[in-house]
């Protein structure tokens, strides 16, 4: 356990990026299968924008860091909303407070730079894909017409008491089904979640303008050099980490 009594964050600016070797966990709120986790000690944390992500690993580890989308960024703190299903994610969900992590970022193009900001959107999140959408809603409520958040089971509702979820096991409905009910012409869509959900939305809204999907892949470097996250688009190969993560659904014929 790398719990130290006095975490001393070391921050270095590498180009336009922030790299912190002493971020420490200060709070955690666990639901069934999901958790909200806050890391503190991050200089200029507030620079992170909706849609951006951080590469995080345990301090001193040689493991490949994992990408986490930002749920909130304030002062020296970053809050994440994570599914507790991988090694690092389980770690974030269970280690003692003050445990230190190494993180770098924020990476990725902010959603606001990818979308038409004269447009209003329905945000559709699946599972932990809700994180960047809730961050966008907090920063730019003017862009949001509706928010639809879907979960397979009702494990995360306690983490967001003010929000209504579509729970598949209870409502016999998935997020994209609810989207079909509430969507009306003129509204755009920003979706983040598992690929089957993104596929369903891309098919449902084939030909509809302003439909954006936030893609996920196991990222390597996070900065666009290793090409581990390249995907084909109508305008050529693009990198999820550097050119995305948000893409116009019309650019991704393979998703439909």
């Amino acid at each position: 356990m790398e719990t130290t009594t006095k975490p001393q964050p070391q921050t270095a600016r590498n180009g336009s990026f922030l790299s912190v070797s002493g971020a420490h966990l200060i709070s955690r709120n666990r639901g069934a299968g999901y958790a909200r986790v806050t890391l503190a000690g991050i200089t200029e944390a507030e620079l992170a924008q909706p849609g951006q992500f951080l590469m995080i690993r345990r301090l001193g580890s040689a493991a490949l860091p994992r990408a986490f989308s930002v749920l909130r960024a304030e002062d020296d703190r970053i809050e994440l909303f994570i599914k507790l299903d991988g090694l690092l994610r389980e770690l974030l969900g269970s280690v003692p407070y003050r445990t230190r992590f190494e993180l770098r970022g924020p990476y990725g193009v902010p959603y606001e730079e990818q979308i038409d900001t004269d447009q209003r959107y329905i945000l559709v999140g699946g599972g932990s894909g809700a994180a960047p959408l809730l961050f966008l809603r907090e920063r730019r409520p003017d862009l949001v017409a509706e928010t639809v958040l879907g979960f397979r089971h009702d494990g995360a509702s306690g983490l967001f008491p003010a929000l209504d979820f579509v729970v598949e096991a209870r409502d016999r409905l998935q997020a994209h089904d609810r989207l079909a009910e509430v969507w009306r012409p003129g509204l755009g869509v920003i979706a983040c979640g598992p690929e089957p959900m993104l596929r369903a939305i891309a098919r449902q809204h084939d030909g509809v303008p302003h439909v954006y999907v936030s893609l996920e892949a196991r990222l390597g470097c996070g900065i666009g050099s290793c090409l581990g996250c390249s995907i084909p688009t109508l305008t050529g190969t693009q990198r999820i980490c550097r050119d995305g993560p948000l893409f116009a659904s019309s650019e991704l014929p393979w998703l439909r």
Binding site: L64, A217, R218, L219, G220, C226, L227, G228, C229, S230, I231, P232, T237
Partner: peptide, 23 residues
């Protein structure tokens, strides 16, 4: 070369399996 389709990176104990395909 466009390289290989996703997934290109798979986690392994103490390492990573990569399949970039010389993009």
């Amino acid at each position: 070369r466009a390289g290989n389709p996703q997934p290109r990176l798979v986690d392994c104990p103490s390492g990573l399996l990569n399949s970039i395909g010389l993009e």
